[in-house]
């Protein structure tokens, strides 16, 4: 199942022979080794694997937050490693919405203002920005909480604000790093339902990193990372 079947499968993310290592002093620590992965438009992919296996690192590479050491990495046909810092920032602003485990809302801004933030980088007028913000807050059912500060919202509500923020620029790619990791079962279910809805109704390509099999079950496809290597899709699961 790949989102909207009417949409001809076109690769959004193409990764081949991707390597990434971190340097700790003189020691080189390989984190990702020879990753090969293709994600189609409108796909909902879950990355699973034990802690330290490199899930976050891979997600960051795809979302243009970090750079690989070697290998091929294109998103929407754009060769991300070739972009400058500034071009990469512009690309992120236009193409990616990021969701974090701990929501990462700005505590001194209201829900509305938090969601509005990414739009400040666009040419939209105040009026247009308001329309966009109202729309996505409506979508995450938080219109009545728009003037609350993050501290006045529950974890689940904060994560919905974060989703609205990721969504407000209408990016094609949504990257979520353990979006339910800090939530109770019920809130986690709501968040996953919301992401599923975004995938189904709006054809968003979604990549989530998760430890939670229940959350992963919402995804159309699950890939596992172990010690920096992607298991073949056919290989048996053991998380």
């Amino acid at each position: 199942m790949t989102g909207n079947p009417a949409l001809a499968p076109a690769p959004v993310v193409e990764i081949a022979h991707l390597n990434k290592s971190y340097r700790r002093g003189s020691q080189v620590l390989p984190v990702l080794q020879d990753i090969n992965l293709t994600i189609q438009a409108g796909e909902f992919l879950a990355l699973m694997g034990p802690s330290g296996s490199g899930k976050t690192t891979l997600l960051n590479l795809i979302a243009g937050l970090d750079r690989p050491d070697s290998g091929h990495l294109t998103v929407h046909g754009i060769n991300l490693p070739a972009l400058t810092e500034s071009q990469l920032a512009d690309w992120r602003a236009a193409n990616v919405g990021f969701i974090f485990q701990f929501y990462q809302l700005i505590p001194v801004l209201t829900a509305y203002e938090n969601v509005e933030l990414p739009l400040l980088l666009t040419r939209l007028s105040r009026r247009e920005r308001q329309e966009h913000v109202d729309l996505v807050l409506e979508l995450v059912s938080l219109s009545d909480r728009q003037h609350h500060y993050p501290g006045q919202l529950s974890g689940g509500q904060q994560q919905r604000v974060a989703i609205a923020r990721a969504l407000v620029t209408d990016p094609t790619l949504i990257a979520a790093d353990e979006p339910t990791g800090d939530l109770d079962k019920k809130s986690a279910g709501e968040i996953m339902d919301l992401l599923t809805q975004l995938n189904r109704e709006f054809q968003k390509t979604i990549i989530i990193v998760t430890h939670d099999p229940e959350a992963a079950a919402h995804a159309g496809r699950i890939r596992r990372l172990i010690k920096g290597q992607l298991l073949n899709e056919s290989e048996p699961q053991e998380d």
Partner: peptide
């Protein structure tokens, strides 16, 4: 952390 989050959104 907040600065990093702003950067993920494309702030420079």
């Amino acid at each position: 952390g907040e600065y990093a989050v702003l950067k993920t959104m494309g702030f420079k």
